[in-house]
Design a protein around this nucleic acid. Structure first.
Lengths: 197, 197
DNA sequence: GAGATTGACGAATGTCCGTTCTAGAATGTG
DNA sequence: CACATTCTAGAACGGACATTCGTCAATCTC
């Protein structure tokens, strides 16, 4: 019944994702969005609701694809330390070459919107807590595997979380691979037992 | 000659600073700004030029007061390590109690504007480089004073820079003192020689 | 104190924003 | 093939935005 949609919703969502990611929420007008997606305003509102609704859908898609893919690397590694190293290596690569040259959509949006949108702020905080838990899991695993410096405790998960947020900020200045790599290495070298790399 | 200004420029600039700091560039309309400063649009444009001009003036004021005050703590301490500890302690305090509960104006603006305003991006990058240099100086001093872990090198300045940026992001989620303190402690404990705190 | 100059006020301007509306095109059902 | 339904295209809408302008008030110089 009725006319069938002529554009692919997920495809349009991916384009909206890249647009919001690069330009931020306020920096992305519906008009720009429509041009990028090649869809008219009426259709956008019919399919996604308001601009904020669309943004939430984009955010969900980001968490399910980009973010989930990154976190996956922590847990599916052969060891706790390797999981962390793989995660950071992938982060650095994506910041130099890939879409993470715009930083992280969650970090960017947290900085831009948390102060004025408590609901979104809660969502961001939840995501950060999830990442922290993944870090804590990998650290606990590394501890069991004997790869950790004695002084490194569970509070190291908070440090890693801060380092990742900081790298997300620094990525927006396009500092080159060396700097980002150095930050990641320094953060992890502070955890692992000396001479165990 | 002619009528004298009835509002204090620096005072107005401080109010604009707080407003931009809390709400961001796009989130702060001229109207909101005028209401906060208790100055009419015409006077604002006569005194400061465009919104972007005003923002640059605000940024300069931030660097000369808030930021300079923070960096000052690094260099004026009795030792390299103490300088770093004082700096982070002050950061945590301001994030819990003070104006840094909105993060850092430079970090916030970098995330919001760097992608679309290359001139501002250069200014942000310059500021980050300056902070990095201060960290490097304190680290070199601590090395000379024998307070540093052997593995800690100059690349630790980049790590500290990332940690500060990350704390600025996390501050916007209002995580409470414990988390921020733990991040700062973990970052510094990774530098100092064991049992030398 | 007259004239010139500068600032304050606040209404006005044009543009762009998010959103909605109208018209028509495409599909499903009888 | 008619009808109901759901989509697309794009014009239209009200409001908010950054910025400017016109009018009047205050201050300086002579």
């Amino acid at each position: 019944m009725g006319r069938t949609r002529t554009f692919d919703v997920d495809e349009a969502l991916d384009i909206a994702l890249d647009t919001f990611w690069e330009r931020g929420f306020d920096g992305t007008s519906i008009q720009v969005l429509c041009r990028a997606m090649d869809v008219q305003p009426g259709s956008v509102y019919a399919a996604f609701g308001t601009k904020r609704d669309l943004f939430v859908a984009v955010l969900r898609r980001y968490l399910e694809t980009v973010s989930a893919d990154a976190v996956q690397r922590i847990n599916s590694a052969p060891s706790g330390i390797r999981g962390l190293r793989d995660y950071f290596a992938h982060l650095v690569d994506a910041m130099v070459d890939g879409r993470r040259r715009w930083g992280c959509l969650v970090t960017n949006s947290l900085v831009e919107l948390a102060e004025r949108d408590p609901d979104l702020a809660g969502l961001f905080q939840l995501h950060l807590a999830g990442l922290r838990t993944s870090f804590a899991g990998a650290i606990a695993r590394a501890r069991a595997e004997g790869d950790l410096r004695p002084a490194a405790g569970p509070e190291s998960a908070d440090l890693l979380l801060a380092v990742v947020q900081g790298m997300n900020v620094m990525a927006k200045t396009h500092p080159g691979r060396a700097v980002l790599q150095s930050v990641a290495d320094a953060a992890l070298d502070g955890l692992v037992a000396p001479g165990d790399r």
